[in-house]
């Protein structure tokens, strides 16, 4: 063993576990992903503000920078410079860790998502399963984070988050089963490869609709922002988190939106497939941005759902439809 590479033991361990082959490349890729997420979060935060302002007949941020593009930076500095207050009856450890943990989860999941056939951290055989299993931890983290603040609004929000999990998780998983039968596996790369003549949105439009609604609920985007319903629960599980954590929460929102859009693009919209005059990663990111814009449009237009009607909606409409989708997929495509 040479002394030149201090990470050799780690590399060897990871290699023997067949996870990665090149730790240096992995670190470079991690930095790349971090930059990508930051740029997306920053710019999309601005785009969303501007778009919503247009829909409201307002101007949105105007003064800081050209077209107000530096407004988010100014807000970022302001929020960071404020005092961080932890309520007396909060559980300090959980209070301080849950939000960063949630962010780490989301960043880690984006890290696992392949951006093109060559640009990926790892080629996991069960990538789809791992991502969605990890995603379903999110409500439990929200639950802990909400209960930890010792606030009653946060408490209700935490309870709602568990009910939400029950209502949308099963239909989404059933759609994923149909997707994996079409793609012959859970590998995200092979899912994209399987879409090369026809995207899955054409092969199973019903599945796409169910999955899109499920992802809206997963990302807590309107009309499913039931956990953070600001007119009734103030800010839901977020109520007692003060300024720096609030900023982290905003960051988390956009990161999760990127993750959700990437997943929708990969699973249903052909991922990085596209005309070859531009690199494949561009097509994937362009699709993700378009999906994010669609999510913002929905946010502008709709009103918030009630928790019991979400439960009803999930079990009476989404679940049977996802079963029908599964059966139809089996009948038509599986020989």
């Amino acid at each position: 063993m040479s002394i030149g590479n201090p990470f050799m033991w780690l590399t060897q361990a990871l290699q023997s576990a067949n996870i990665v082959s090149n730790i240096e490349a992995l670190i470079v890729y991690a930095i790349f992903i971090a930059v990508l997420i930051s740029v997306f979060d920053y710019l999309f935060g601005w785009v969303e503000r501007k778009m919503i302002a247009k829909a409201h007949l307002r101007h949105g941020p105007t003064y800081v920078g050209k077209y107000g593009i530096l407004q988010n930076l100014a807000d970022f500095i302001k929020l960071l410079s404020k005092e961080n207050i932890i309520p007396r009856n909060a559980d300090r450890l959980l209070f301080m860790t849950m939000l960063p943990l949630l962010l780490a989860f989301s960043v880690f999941l984006i890290f696992l998502v392949p951006l093109s056939p060559t640009l990926q951290a790892t080629n996991l055989g069960l990538g789809l399963l791992i991502i969605f299993v990890t995603l379903s931890f999110v409500p439990s983290i929200v639950f802990l984070g909400g209960v930890a603040t010792g606030n009653k609004f946060a408490d209700i929000s935490a309870q709602r988050s568990v009910i939400m999990l029950v209502s949308y998780e099963l239909p989404v998983i059933l759609v994923l089963v149909a997707v994996s039968t079409l793609a012959n596996g859970f590998n995200l790369g092979s899912i994209v490869a399987a879409q090369s003549p026809y995207w899955f949105i054409i092969l199973m439009p019903l599945g796409f609709v169910i999955f899109f609604i499920g992802m809206l609920a997963e990302l807590e985007r309107p009309p499913f922002d039931i956990r953070e319903a600001d007119s009734e629960l103030i800010a839901g599980w977020f109520t007692d988190y003060s300024s720096p954590y609030y900023m982290l929460g905003l960051f988390l929102d956009y990161t999760r939106m990127l993750l959700g859009s990437l997943l929708i693009a990969i699973i249903f919209l052909g991922g990085w497939l596209g005309p070859s005059f531009l690199p494949p990663m561009f097509w994937l990111l362009a699709k993700a941005v378009i999906i994010s814009l669609a999510i913002v449009f929905i946010r502008v237009a709709t009103v918030r759902m009630r928790i019991n009607s979400l439960l009803r909606f999930g079990w009476i409409y989404l679940l049977p439809l996802s079963i029908i989708n599964l059966i139809v997929t089996f009948i038509i495509f599986v020989k």
């Binding site: 307002r58 007119s231 946010r299 502008v300 009103v303 918030r304």
Partner: peptide, 16 residues
């Protein structure tokens, strides 16, 4: 519209 959870769209229109 705000209280049933719309993101201030009708609110802004109505105010203008």
């Amino acid at each position: 519209a705000n209280d049933v959870g719309q993101l201030a769209t009708v609110f802004m229109w109505a105010f203008s």
